[in-house]
Design a binder for these strands. Structure first.
Length: 486
RNA sequence: GGCCCCAUCGUCUAAUGGUUAGGACAUCGCCCUUUCACGGCGGUAAUAUGGGUUCGAAUCCCGUUGGGGUCACCA
């Protein structure tokens, strides 16, 4: 436990949706905060006006909330350190950039994009190991700078990185990391449109919002020296850093849209449970050190520590997600599943009024061990929602013989005599019929299943009959006798 | 290419100098079940590589190889 209660943030850029990699980052931040009785903060990094996407923030928030990642401070709920949208904090960044200019740690740059392009090209042509800004504008005279400023030509503010020294910081996950300042570029801090870049904004905000731990993806590791420099230039205490390993495609490249679904909303739409997704994502790069794999959120909170986060990237393995999702679904009570099933029934545009809760509950208990998604109650056992209109061809070939219609008719007669039958009643009636016919029970069971369900797989036949009810069962047998042709 | 990070079964991972290198998913086989699942039992399958250090290395150090990230007025 950390003595001071930690404050961590999830700071996404609102580019449209919540990426599962972002979910993992958000989750680890959340778990770390909750485990240590700290605060979890949502901050929107919308400093790139070119990447503005309508509705992206709302979408992000709704995905986060669906997953159960409630934040203590954020753009829609406020907090003591707001606003939580960087686009609403512009004066703060320029004020701090000014301070840096006064100290000589930053400087105005008036170079045109054309000059910068040419510079890069030239450096590439010379095969210089590292393409960097050449500090051209650092050497401008006071007069030149003032003249440029007054003339109103486009300007940016750059970080003034001193050459020839080591920048060292420590990362909770990776240990000591060292960079040579010669490899750190004079990063733009304030763009020509007056907006800050990520590097300035995240440092200023993390400081002002009293963030104690920066937990973010590994893609930020190589720009961390710039942030470290900024903290030093401002004379601010640095937060702890923890750079999380990346989530990968099956081919081990960074998880991308091209190779499958990456948005949380995609998984939600496909019918994954938030419990399954969270459980799965939590295990991508972290484990408690034991064999436990099935977790609820509260258990994750209890067990999670950053020290047990792995260093290496993890492949997003759909097979395991499917399995965990099925585990979570099976652990739910029938009553919990009921409303979810109703939703799917409506989505499938069946007439809900035809199905009583009692009937649906029976379906749930009989199918529970056979489904991995709520939707599969419909797709794996459509016969509970409408009588079969077709019969599986392979099962007909295997189970429907010339003598079958007559035998099944006998079974029909036996069932007719039953009064409010239980599973056992059906079973006894069938056994007796088989005996009278002098045939094995299988000769009746398989055709019976085919008749009432149209397919050859599913719950035990007698459970199936009980769920369907006597009337419906008889009706379906009769129909089948008439319709199934060898 | 420069810089940085990383490396245990196909995949997620355990083993913080001494284990027959463990578990889970996937896969295969058997059992349960006159179906399909669930469940149970079992099998195949890994320390990238070369050097050190050590009585002893998956574990510590160095090299190699491989992979990834990053090198924007994007985050």
């Amino acid at each position: 436990m950390i003595d001071e209660f930690p404050r961590v943030r999830f700071a996404p850029s609102p580019t449209g949706y919540l990426h599962v990699g972002g979910l993992r980052t958000a989750l680890y931040n959340y778990l770390f905060a909750k485990h240590n009785n700290g605060k979890f903060i949502l901050r929107i990094e919308d400093t790139d006006r070119n990447r503005f996407v309508e509705g992206a923030v709302e979408n992000l928030i709704s995905s986060l909330k669906w997953c159960g990642l409630e934040y203590d401070e954020g753009p829609d709920i406020g907090g003591s350190f707001g606003p939580y949208m960087q686009s609403m904090r512009l004066e703060l960044y320029s004020k701090h950039a000014q301070e840096l200019i006064e100290n000589g740690h930053a400087y105005y740059c008036f170079c045109t994009p054309e000059r910068l392009d040419a510079l890069r090209e030239e450096q590439q042509r010379q095969k210089l190991p590292q393409a960097k800004y050449d500090k051209h504008c650092l050497h401008l005279s006071k007069e030149e700078i003032n003249e440029n400023l007054e003339s109103g030509i486009a300007k940016v503010i750059r970080l003034n990185v001193e050459p020839n020294h080591k920048i060292v910081f420590s990362d909770i996950i990776r240990g000591r990391v060292e960079f040579d300042s010669n490899n750190v570029d004079d990063q733009v801090l304030i763009k020509s449109d007056g907006y800050p870049t990520y590097h300035l904004a995240n440092v200023v905000d993390d400081h002002l919002m009293k963030i104690t731990h920066v937990v973010r993806g590994e893609e930020w590791l190589s720009s961390t020296p710039k942030h470290v420099l900024l903290y030093d230039f401002f004379n601010w205490e640095k937060p702890e850093f923890a750079h999380l390993p990346l989530l990968l495609n099956p081919d081990r490249t960074k998880l991308s849209k091209r190779q499958g679904d990456v948005a949380v909303e995609d998984y939600r739409a496909k019918g994954f449970l938030k419990e399954g997704l969270i459980n799965f994502v939590a295990l991508l790069g972290w484990n408690a050190g034991d064999d436990k794999e099935f977790y609820y959120m509260n258990e994750l909170i209890e067990k999670f520590t950053l020290e047990r986060v792995n260093k290496a990237g993890a492949v997003f393995d759909l097979d395991k997600l499917n399995w965990l999702n099925a585990e979570h679904l099976r652990k739910k009570s029938d009553e919990e599943i009921l409303p979810m099933l109703k939703e799917e029934i409506i989505r499938a545009s069946y007439d809900m009024s035809k199905f009583s809760d009692d009937y649906l509950l029976k379906i749930i208990s009989t199918m529970k061990e056979r489904v991995s998604f709520v939707r599969e109650y419909l797709t794996k056992s459509p016969y509970f929602f409408e009588a079969p209109t077709e019969y599986e061809q392979s099962s007909i070939q295997k189970n429907w013989k010339e003598e079958t219609p007559e035998q099944i008719s006998k079974l029909y007669d036996a069932f007719t005599k039953l009064n409010n039958p239980t599973k056992e009643d059906y079973e006894i009636a069938l056994a007796k019929t088989a005996e009278e016919l002098n045939i094995g029970k299988g000769k009746l069971i398989h055709p019976l299943r085919l008749s009432v369900s149209g397919i050859s797989t599913g719950p035990g036949v007698f459970d199936l009959l009980v769920t369907l009810g006597k009337e419906e069962t008889l009706k379906r047998i009769k129909t089948a006798i008439g319709k199934i042709k060898i």
